[in-house]
Amino acid sequence: MNKFEKLEDVAYQDDVDVLNYRFESNNIKGLYCDGVIAIREDMTIPEKTCALAEELGHHETSVGNILDMTSAVNRKQERQARLHGYNRLIGLIGLVNAYEHGCQDKYEIAEYLEVTEEFLEECIECYRNKYGICKQVDNYVVYFIPQLSVMKLV
């Protein structure tokens, strides 16, 4: 079972319907409204996985109509939903696991974690803003500056 299928199961258990949908705009990857998530039907599985994770984040963290991104409150809710998706699909432990698996670059990490490179890069940027230079997790230090790297502590 891939990550997308696992997320569909999570949605089902939360009474959230997930629908494949043909959006008119190429800019829309997914939308959440009142217990229904619509995912753009013509995306790859990793793209759908990333979109579904973010929309589940909206289900769990957002309140009301947040389409107006000129509102600071709405931008904050959007950031929270994205962070929720990053933590669900990647997380610090996911970066450590990719390192232990022998992943050498962002392409390999994204493939290992079943996410897009774009989603991974956005996650790293978000973590860089949240944690700064690095963050220790268990016996590892995950560095975000100058680039993503993981160091195992002895």
Rank of each mutant, 00 (worst) to 15 (best):
Q77V: 03
A81W: 06
N26E: 15
L67N: 13
L83M: 11
E108M: 13
A81P: 09
E114Y: 01
H84T: 09
L92W: 00
G85P: 06
T44M: 07
A53N: 08
K130H: 10
E78M: 04
E111A: 13
A72V: 09
V10F: 09
D9W: 09
I145F: 03
E8W: 07
K135W: 00
V73R: 12
E100W: 00
D15T: 08
K106L: 15
I45N: 08
E117N: 10
E108H: 10
Y143G: 01
F4S: 03
D15Y: 11
N20E: 15
I133E: 14
K48N: 05
Q104M: 12
G85T: 08
I90P: 04
K152A: 11
G132W: 08
K152Q: 14
L19P: 01
C123Q: 01
D34G: 13
D17N: 10
M1H: 06
K48S: 10
N20A: 14
P146Y: 07
A38S: 12
V73I: 13
K135E: 15
Y99R: 01
V36H: 03
L95Q: 04
Q104E: 14
V141A: 00
I90F: 02
L95A: 06
I66C: 01
L95I: 12
C126D: 12
L19H: 07
D105N: 15
L19A: 04
G132L: 07
I39R: 02
F119N: 06
A72R: 12
F4W: 12
A98V: 06
N87Y: 03
Y21E: 11
K76G: 03
N20V: 01
T61M: 12
N87A: 02
E5Y: 09
S149G: 06
V63P: 00
T70R: 14
K3N: 13
L56Q: 06
E8L: 11
C123S: 15
L92D: 01
G57Y: 08
G132R: 07
S62G: 07
Y143A: 03
R40V: 05
P46I: 09
